[in-house]
Structures are given as structure tokens and as C-alpha cells.
Write a protein that binds this DNA or RNA. Structure first.
Lengths: 211, 211
DNA sequence: TCAGAAGTTGACGCGGCGTCATGAATTGTT
DNA sequence: AACAATTCATGACGCCGCGTCAACTTCTGA
């Protein structure tokens, strides 16, 4: 059977390590959803598992770290999609609208993940910086810079542009989830129009700097 | 002396209550700055004070609540400024640029407060929802609606527009603080240009809705 | 078959949590 | 001025979660 196969390939030790880690993550997802992030303790998580309390610390330093792992799993699912969407883009309009639409679509469909998080009033917003998430931002900025180099769009401070896009994306996504009358389409159209319209007006890089 | 005066006016009881509350808030500001939000305990806060541990709970339910109070103090300082700036505005350009400039200016000058917060990696971002802060957002939206009614700007989904402005404001503010080469002026110009340029392109309210 | 490595276990000491009985200080009343 | 009532500060207390660590079990490679 497949478990034996894996055991052969990876060794039993590696196998149970992976299983334990995943068991903790899965338990955490459940418990966070039930109790809310702030209220859950490491003990709650480990209790929802077959493992002993000490074992938790072989895998994570704290509940924060488990949360990050959860977050990273999510980010790992979106990033490739966003990346693909941007690479496919033939012009700036597609670049922008594709990015926003993909993101909002993900947030909406993956509401299971996000709703879990959003129940917790303590974790105030969708927006959180986990290394994976930050890496995703960096990818966006890199792609923006490529687009500028290709002449697809004017040369603008890519860092600020990225910041603005990220801010709009997360904040609008929040409102989309809260309000029933805002569809993915509405949200994407809104964000896209804002940036397509605003782009030509943005201060060009190198120019206008009073240095 | 003035303390006697206050005591006469407010009663000694009220007086010490106000003092204790403020002492706790001040101690919290200090301790948060020193240890970071996540690492500080209620005990740490109360220890930085002359009061006994039980007294803390006469004023706040948890460290979260003290943090909110801190946050509210800050929001209470910005809101009137933003409000005044928007009321003074004679056209949409002034409305937008005044709002952003005031906000970024505040963040920069009040870095003491914000830097304190930003040291804490756990509180991921400037952006947090405390009742005062939310009230500030609502004010912005209300003012946007007034501006639309006055014909200063086209009728747009004010909720989404507010969300976008808030997102850009906080995210760009973050980058402004992190990067030494972005001045308040740069940040304000960038955000203003984005919205002034994007506004005409935004989907008009009532139109285009496929309902 | 066995020695060493790797990893699991749960009991332990420490410290923070929120409560509550006690007592001190302030206020209002006669 | 004396007193009763009210308000509030105090800090000890029981509870629980924290992270550690010595003992033990399981796996691995020779």
C-alpha cells in the first residue's frame, strides 16, 4: 500500500515527522476556528491531537508559528496563480485587472480559510506579513519592474505602487466579504479602474524629485 | 494650587480614578515600547506603576483593552485634523490631497507613537480597528458622500472608495516610514495623483450594475 | 542483532491570570 | 464633628498554561 511505499522512500522517521507536523497544523486550523486565535492556547491545539504537549515544541515555537504555517499554506496557493496571471498579461490593463480579479476570486472562494481568520476580531484584518506573503509582494514588485522595463507602463516608484495595490487589494477584499452586494467582479472593476486611471497621473520616477 | 481646584470640582474620588487610569495607560505605552506588545503582560504594566495588580482590573479587562485606549488617544488626535482639512477643501483635489497630506504628516511626526507600535512585529501593521479608528473611517465616508451630493465629485460607491483610500493611506504610510527616501510630500503626491487620476475612471454608482 | 540516533512523552517548576475578602479612604448625612 | 455608607485599592490565592528535560520508545544503519 502507498504508506509502505512512502515509508520506503522517505524512511519511517521522516514519515511520522511530516504527519505530526500536519496533524498539528490541521488541529490548529480547527481550534482557531472554534475558539478564535487569541483565546486558543498551545495546549488546546495539542489536545486536539494525539500527541503529547512536549511534542508540539519539536515542530513549532509557539502558536504564532503555527498560524504562520497556516498562512503560508494559503499564500502558497495564491502566489502561483497571481504569477501566472501576470505573466500571461499582454498589456498593463491585463496585468492589473488579472491580478485583482484573481486575488478577489481567491479570497471569495477560499472564504473558508479567510472567514476562519476573520471571525477573530483580534486579528484585525486579512492583511498579515508572513514570509510567504512578503515574498508574494516582492514578486509583484519585481513583475511591475519588468513591465516598466518593457515599456508596458511608465516608470514609477515600484515600491509605492506595490504598496498602493496591496493596500487596495486587502482593504477592498475585506469590504467585499462584509458587503453582500459587492461581487468579485465589482471589486475587480473598481480596483482596476482606479489604477488604470491613476497610473498616467502618477509622478514619474527620477523626475520631480527635489533632491 | 490647581490640584486642589480640580479636587474641589471633581471630587477626590474622581480625581484619583482619572489619575490611575492615566498612569496605567502611560505605563503601558512605556512597557509596550520596551518589551513589544506580545511579550508584555498585565503584570509588567502594573509593575511599572505604583498600583497593585488587582487595581488594573478596575480599569481594564486585559492588555488588549489598554492597547485600544492607547490607539484611541492617537485616533482622537488625528480625526479632528482630518475633518478640518476636508471641510476646508473647496474642490475634490483639495479634499484628497489635504486628507493624505495630513495623515502622512501625522504619521511621520507622531512616529514616537507609531514607531512604538511598529517595533512589534506581531502587530503586523499600522492598520488596526479600534472603535475610534472605525469612527474616523465612517467620517471619511460621510464626507465623501457629502462631496458627491455637492457635485464636487462623481457619484461612486463611497464604501469602496473609502476602503481604497484607507488601504492606500496605511500601506503607503508604512513604506514611507520604512524607506528613508520617501518624504511626506512624496507619499502625499503619490496617493493624491492615484485617486485624482483614477476617480474619473471609476464605475459610477447605479450605472453598469448588472442587477 | 545491536548500538547509537532520533524523537516522544508527561511531570515539573515557574509565572501570569483574574478573583475576592479585607480594610482604608472619601462622601454625604445628621 | 461624628458616623454610616459607599467606593475603591490591595495582595494573597487557586488555577492553568508555559517551555523544559530526563527517561523511555522507536527507528536506522552496520
Amino acid at each position: 500500500m502507498s504508506i509502505d511505499l512512502e515509508a520506503k522512500l522517505r524512511g519511517k522517521r521522516e514519515e511520522t515527522k511530516a504527519n505530526n507536523r500536519q496533524a498539528i497544523i490541521d488541529a490548529a486550523r480547527l481550534v482557531f476556528a472554534e475558539l478564535g486565535y487569541g483565546a486558543t492556547t498551545v495546549r488546546d491545539i495539542i489536545r486536539a491531537t494525539e500527541l503529547a504537549s512536549g511534542t508540539f515544541y519539536n515542530y513549532f515555537k509557539s502558536k504564532e508559528e503555527v498560524y504562520q504555517a497556516l498562512r503560508d499554506e494559503t499564500a502558497l496557493r495564491v502566489r502561483p496563480r497571481l504569477r501566472a496571471e501576470r505573466i500571461r498579461a499582454r498589456n498593463f490593463e491585463e496585468f492589473i485587472s488579472g491580478s485583482f480579479r484573481t486575488f478577489f476570486d481567491f479570497v471569495k472562494n477560499d472564504q473558508a480559510t479567510f472567514a476562519t481568520m476573520r471571525r477573530n476580531q483580534e486579528l484585525q484584518h486579512v492583511r498579515i506579513d508572513t514570509p510567504e506573503v512578503v515574498a508574494g509582494f516582492d514578486e509583484l514588485r519585481a513583475d511591475l519592474e519588468v513591465a516598466m522595463a518593457n515599456g508596458m507602463m511608465p516608470a514609477i516608484d515600484s515600491d509605492l505602487l506595490m504598496a498602493a495595490m496591496v493596500g487596495v487589494a486587502f482593504e477592498v477584499a475585506n469590504h467585499m466579504l462584509v458587503r453582500s452586494d459587492v461581487s468579485v467582479d465589482d471589486a475587480a472593476r473598481f480596483a482596476t479602474a482606479l489604477f488604470l486611471g491613476g497610473l498616467p497621473a502618477l509622478p514619474k520616477k527620477g523626475a520631480g524629485k527635489k533632491r
